[in-house]
Amino acid sequence: MTVTAEQIDALLPQTQCRKCGFEGCKPYAEAIASGQADINQCPPGGEAGILKLSTLLGVAAKPLAPAFGVERPRLVAVINEAECIGCTKCLPPCPTDAILGSSKHMHTVIEAECTGCELCVAPCPVNCISMQPAPHPDWTLKDADHSRIRYQAKNLRLAKQETEKAERLMRQKQLLAKINKTKT
């Protein structure tokens, strides 16, 4: 029986943290399925995730590879709102749109949507984002499914914005060409 990337992806925590060395859970699943990555590269999945993958793939479980991090309790991002300058640099890296805010206004994290990926921490120029223990530390497959849906929705939204931007630029170029043509 051939195991698909979709079956592997279904077992991953969907934090989209990139700690595995890939751009998200789906690319990591594809790499495992194609034999380009090992099953022990996901710190958020930890030992339990490695055991699920080893069972699915029919291979021996192994410890989490230290080069990819360490297993630890689930964390969530918390923004010190008094220190937030509203720069919006934390918004793009958030894989699930768990951060609310706009330019020059305070930001906040929707705790229930935060995967604990930590991708928002490094871009913050004033270090007002910290990672704190999640009030509900158990990350379930239901949580992973919810995060996958939010991640996919964000990617669809961004793709739609890019398409709309390209269409606007095309219309502007056509209008400019038309104007230039009438001038000659």
Rank of each mutant, 00 (worst) to 15 (best):
Gly24Ile: 04
Ser130Asp: 06
Tyr151Val: 07
Ser54Gln: 01
Pro63Ala: 14
Val126Leu: 12
Val76Ile: 15
Asn155Val: 10
Glu113Val: 01
Leu57Val: 02
Leu64Phe: 06
Pro135Cys: 11
Pro43Tyr: 00
Pro43Thr: 00
Lys104Phe: 13
Glu6Met: 05
Ile99Ser: 02
Cys90His: 02
Phe68Gln: 05
Ser130Gln: 13
Pro27Cys: 04
Pro66Met: 03
Ala61Gln: 13
Arg18Tyr: 06
Gly86Pro: 07
Val76Tyr: 12
Leu57Asp: 02
Val59Asn: 06
His136Ser: 14
Ala37Met: 08
Cys128Ile: 09
Ser102Leu: 15
Trp139Asn: 03
Ala77His: 07
Cys117Thr: 02
Pro93Cys: 03
Pro73Asp: 11
Leu51Ile: 13
Lys19Met: 06
Val126Gly: 04
Ser102Trp: 15
Gly21Ser: 04
Val126Cys: 04
Lys19Val: 01
Gln152Glu: 13
Cys128Leu: 05
Ser147His: 15
Ser103Pro: 06
Ile110Asp: 10
Ala67Arg: 11
Val78Ala: 14
Leu141Phe: 09
Asp143Asn: 09
Asn40Tyr: 00
Met1Glu: 15
Ala122Lys: 12
Lys26Ala: 12
Pro63His: 06
Trp139Cys: 02
Ala10Cys: 08
Val121Pro: 02
Leu57Met: 02
Thr108Gly: 11
Gln41Val: 01
Lys52Phe: 06
Gln16Asp: 07
Glu118Leu: 09
Thr108Asp: 01
Pro92Lys: 05
Gly58Ile: 12
Lys181Gly: 02
Glu30Gln: 15
Cys87Leu: 05
Cys120Phe: 00
Gly69Glu: 09
Thr140Ala: 12
Leu158Arg: 14
Ala29Lys: 03
Pro44Arg: 08
Pro135Phe: 13
Leu141Asn: 12
Pro125His: 09
Gly58Gln: 03
Thr2Trp: 07
His107Phe: 00
Ser130Asn: 12
Ile8Ser: 08
Asn155Cys: 10
Gly101Arg: 04
Pro43Arg: 01
Ala166Ile: 09
Arg168Lys: 12
Ile179Asp: 08
Asp38Cys: 00
Trp139Ala: 06
Glu162Thr: 07
Gly58Thr: 00
Ile32Arg: 09
Val126Met: 06
Asp9Val: 08
Leu11Arg: 04
Glu111Ala: 14
Pro133Trp: 06
Pro63Gln: 07
Lys178Gly: 05
Lys104Ser: 15
Lys154Ala: 02
Gly45His: 01
Gly46Asp: 04
Arg74Ile: 00
